[in-house]
Amino acid sequence: MASTKHTLRTPLSRVRGLGSARSGTSHFWHQRLTAVANVPLALAFIAIVVCATGSGYEEALALVRSPLVAILLLLFILSAAYHMRLGMQVIIEDYVHSGAKVAAVIANTFFAVLVAAAAVFAVLKITFGGM
């Protein structure tokens, strides 16, 4: 049992358990949460891609804009983009120790958001864009 006698940490800080970065285990937890979600979503994504194999323009439009496929694609995009942002951040923090680390972590977030925004926009345009 850690005593508060010889530490400057307050009892409240210990109880919250958020550490010096103020985020506690949330990175790890969100990584696992999206990983659990990604298992069925990625399997659905593979099935969708297999269905789209060799399809023409109109067939592909009809496939992507069908509600179940559109919803599964949107969920996969969001969950996978967040998951890959978390994973790449760990890789950056493991290997980049110079001042470039902060720039790399920022660029990582921008890339993940860009991928998600572009893919979500495309699915919504295909579904609601009157194509």
Partner: peptide, 22 residues
């Protein structure tokens, strides 16, 4: 994991192409 990070662009390219026209 790192390869899938880059590979996410494949899905973006395919969806944007489909959203852009025939």
């Amino acid at each position: 994991g790192a390869a899938l990070y880059v590979g996410s662009l494949l899905l973006v390219i395919w969806l944007l192409a489909l959203a852009s026209g025939p």
